[in-house]
């Protein structure tokens, strides 16, 4: 899932300063699962905003709405009948959702209420961890199913740097060294011979470095 973190209330209030009527948009997908931008968080944030503004004597009207998805225009269209009544939209979906809303309502100011952070998994209740950077050319079959691009602080492809110590990364003693995980997994799989092979320098054209990516499936197009 895409994991995001809520911006601080202070930051959000600063962005909202000029407005008296806003539409607060949540999303039912990833940001709901990571407890940042779902219906519940929309409710909490709306009350926080209204309370703070009331305290300042600057009442604000906040309409709460949570869409099935903010990355599909059919759902974004659901707010079209009333979006005109609001001065700005505050979205707490991921960066893709926020942008798509902005694209659809060109004359509305759209503000980000979250910082979109990574593609990851739920480790346990309340703990999420990064797993993939969408590099566009997956090497997990060579690295025991552990991603060296997203999980090694230096994206090293041929083994651990000199800072790997007791399973931890040199960058942070709390962080697991991806290469320790890779080696452990290769051993478990009896694939240590894979470690001996040099992985050649990566072609980054499939990643962000190649420019914004687009995917077209002719067979699915209408």
């Amino acid at each position: 899932m895409i994991v995001a973190n809520r911006k601080t209330l202070e930051e959000i209030l600063t962005m909202l300063k000029p407005y008296k009527k806003i539409l607060l948009l949540g999303c039912n997908e990833c940001v709901t699962v990571c407890a940042t931008g779902g219906e519940r968080e929309v409710g909490v944030l709306a009350s926080e905003i209204k309370l703070s503004r009331a305290k300042e004597g600057q009442e604000i009207e906040v309409r709460e709405q949570t869409l099935e998805r903010q990355c599909d225009h059919e759902y974004i269209d659901q707010v079209r009948p009333f979006v005109g009544d609001y001065e700005a939209i505050l979205s707490i979906a991921c960066g893709a959702g926020i942008q798509y809303v902005a694209e659809k309502y060109r004359n509305k100011v759209v503000l980000p209420g979250v910082n979109t952070t990574f593609l990851g998994v739920t480790l346990e209740q309340g703990v999420w961890s990064e797993r993939c950077q969408g590099c566009g050319e997956c090497v997990l079959h060579l690295t025991g199913g552990v991603c060296p691009i997203a999980r090694c602080a230096k994206s090293l492809l041929n083994g651990p740097c000199g800072g790997s110590s007791n399973g931890k990364c040199e960058v942070d003693k709390e962080l697991e060294c991806a290469w320790q995980l890779i080696v452990d997994r290769l051993k478990e799989l009896n694939q240590m011979d894979k470690y001996e092979e040099i992985i050649p320098i990566k072609d980054w054209t499939t990643s962000r470095d190649g420019g914004p990516r687009k995917r077209i499936r002719e067979d699915l197009r209408l």
């Binding site: 083994g159 800072g163 040099i198 050649p200």
Partner: peptide, 28 residues
């Protein structure tokens, strides 16, 4: 060399590159 992570230095906010690793640099 791979290089220490920028976190340890005087510009921890820098973007790092790591286009290649040290083994790939040797090969280069």
């Amino acid at each position: 060399l791979t290089g220490d992570h920028q976190k340890f230095g005087d510009h921890p906010k820098a973007k790092n590159v790591f286009d290649m690793d040290s083994i790939q640099m040797i090969h280069t």
